[in-house]
C-alpha cells in the first residue's frame, strides 16, 4: 500500500532538509502529552477529512461537524494506535466516510406529503431549486450517485489516492474499486449530459 504519510514534507511544501515526523509518530507523541503534535496532525489531516466530507455531503456546516467528529475520534484512539497496522490517513478517511454515510442516512428527505405547508417568509421550493442550481455541476452530479460509487470517485479523482489505498479505506478489493470508479464516472457523465440537454431545451 502506498505510504502517503512517509513524505509529508513533500506533500505539504515543507523543506526536504527537515524531514517531518510521520503521522503515526505524531499520534504517539500526542498520546504521550505533546500538544504541538495535535496541531501538526490537525494541519496535515484536517484538510483531507474536510475535503472528502464537503464532497460527500455538499454542505459546509455538516462537513465541518463531520470533520470535527472524525478528528475527535482520532484523539480518542491515539493511545491505542498500533503502528504498522494501517496508515493514520487511511483510518481517518474511513471514519470520515462512515460519518458522512451515517449523516446522510439520518437526514433522508421526508416524503412530500409529510412536509409542512409553506408559510409566508419560509424558504420556497423555488429558492431551494435555485440554491441547488448554484452548486457546481460536479457536486450536483455527485449528490445523485450511490454512496459507494461517490466515495470511490471522490477518493480516486479528487483526492487522487491510489486504488490500493482506496481499497484499504473502503475495505474492498482493488478490482472492486476499479469497478466502482468506472461505473461512477459513467453515471456522472450521463447525469451531466442530461443536465446539458435540459439547459439546451430551456434555452431553446
Amino acid at each position: 500500500m502506498e505510504d502517503l504519510t512517509s513524505q509529508p514534507e513533500q506533500a505539504h511544501g515543507g523543506s526536504a532538509a527537515m524531514p517531518a515526523a510521520s503521522d503515526h509518530v505524531l499520534l504517539a507523541r500526542f498520546a504521550s502529552g505533546d500538544a504541538m503534535a495535535a496541531r501538526m496532525l490537525t494541519d496535515r489531516l484536517g484538510p483531507r477529512s474536510y475535503s472528502v466530507a464537503m464532497r460527500m455531503l455538499g454542505n459546509r456546516t455538516e462537513a465541518e461537524d463531520v470533520t470535527q467528529d472524525a478528528m475527535m475520534r482520532l484523539w480518542q484512539m491515539a493511545p491505542d494506535w498500533v503502528p504498522g497496522q494501517a496508515q493514520v490517513s487511511t483510518w481517518l478517511y474511513r471514519v470520515t466516510l462512515n460519518l458522512c454515510v451515517d449523516l446522510r442516512r439520518r437526514k433522508r428527505p421526508e416524503p412530500i406529503e409529510n412536509l409542512p405547508d409553506l408559510q409566508d417568509g419560509a424558504v420556497s421550493v423555488t429558492d431551494k431549486i435555485q440554491d441547488t442550481a448554484r452548486k457546481d455541476a460536479l457536486q450536483s452530479a455527485l449528490d445523485q450517485l450511490p454512496d459507494r460509487q461517490r466515495q470511490a470517485v471522490i477518493l480516486r479523482h479528487i483526492e487522487e489516492l491510489s486504488n490500493p489505498e482506496i481499497a484499504g479505506i473502503m475495505d474492498i478489493s482493488v478490482e472492486a474499486v476499479e469497478s466502482l470508479t468506472a461505473r461512477g464516472k459513467r453515471a456522472l457523465a450521463a447525469i451531466l449530459a442530461g443536465r446539458r440537454d435540459e439547459l439546451g431545451d430551456e434555452n431553446g
Binding site: F30, G33, A35, A38, R39, T42, Q68, M71, M72, W75
Partner: peptide
Amino acid sequence: VRIETDAEAMR
C-alpha cells in the same frame, strides 16, 4: 480552533 480545543481537552 474547535479541533485543537478538542485535542487539548482530551490531552
